Amino acid sequence: MAWMDYVDSLMTANGVGEVAIVGIGCKSIWAATKNGNFCKITCDQISALLGDIKVLQQNGIQLGDKKYTFVTTDCEQNSAANDWKWITISAKGDLKVSAVIHRTETSLILIEAANTDLKGPSLLEILQRTVNYLLANHI
C-alpha cells in the first residue's frame, strides 16, 4: 500500500479531520490530507517534534499554521528526553481540537479530530490499529 492509502484509510474513521505521515530521516511529508494544515508542516517543525519532549511540554508546538499545546505522552518522567512513542496535543485558538502523533522507527503519523467531540484517547485508538499493522508487517 502507498502512504496516501494509509492516510485515506485513517480518514474514513468517524470524526477524523486530518492525517499526515512524515518521514523522520528526511524530515519531509510522505503523505497528508489534501489541502490540510498538516501539508504545511516544515522541516524545522519536524525537528522540534523529534527534540526534547520537555520543550514540547513547556512551549507546545507549531505544526503548519497552527499552534498546539502539549497534553500527554506515554513517556515516563525518568526516561530519555526524546524517548516517546505517542503524544497528545490540542490546537490553540477557537477550535481546540485534539491531535495525536505516533512515532515509529521511520515516521511520525499525525491524526487530528474534525471537531471537539473526538478526544485524544479515541484518536490514539484509531491510529493504533494502523500502527500495529505497519509494525507487524515491518513497514
Rank of each mutant, 00 (worst) to 15 (best):
V55Q: 06
W86R: 04
D83P: 05
W84Q: 07
Y6P: 01
Y68V: 02
S28P: 04
T33A: 05
T33N: 04
K40P: 00
I87N: 00
V97C: 08
W84R: 06
L50D: 02
L118S: 03
D117L: 14
V19S: 02
N37A: 05
W86P: 00
Q58K: 13
V19H: 01
T42G: 02
K34E: 15
A91C: 13
T12K: 15
I109R: 00
K85W: 12
S28I: 14
T106W: 10
A32T: 07
T12F: 11
A114I: 11
N115M: 06
T42M: 05
N59G: 07
T116E: 15
W3R: 11
V22C: 07
V97M: 06
Y68L: 10
A81L: 15
R129Y: 11
W3D: 09
W3K: 10
L10T: 01
I89T: 05
I61N: 02
N78T: 13
T88P: 00
I139W: 10
F70T: 06
K66G: 03
W30F: 15
K119Q: 11
L56S: 03
D44T: 10
N14M: 13
I89M: 08
V19T: 04
L49V: 03
A20W: 00
K92F: 05
T73N: 05
N35V: 12
G64S: 06
T72G: 04
I87A: 05
I24L: 09
G25V: 10
A99K: 01
L127N: 02
T104Q: 03
L110Q: 01
V97T: 08
K96N: 12
A99Y: 01
G23Y: 02
A81E: 14
D8S: 13
V16C: 01
L50Q: 04
I41A: 02
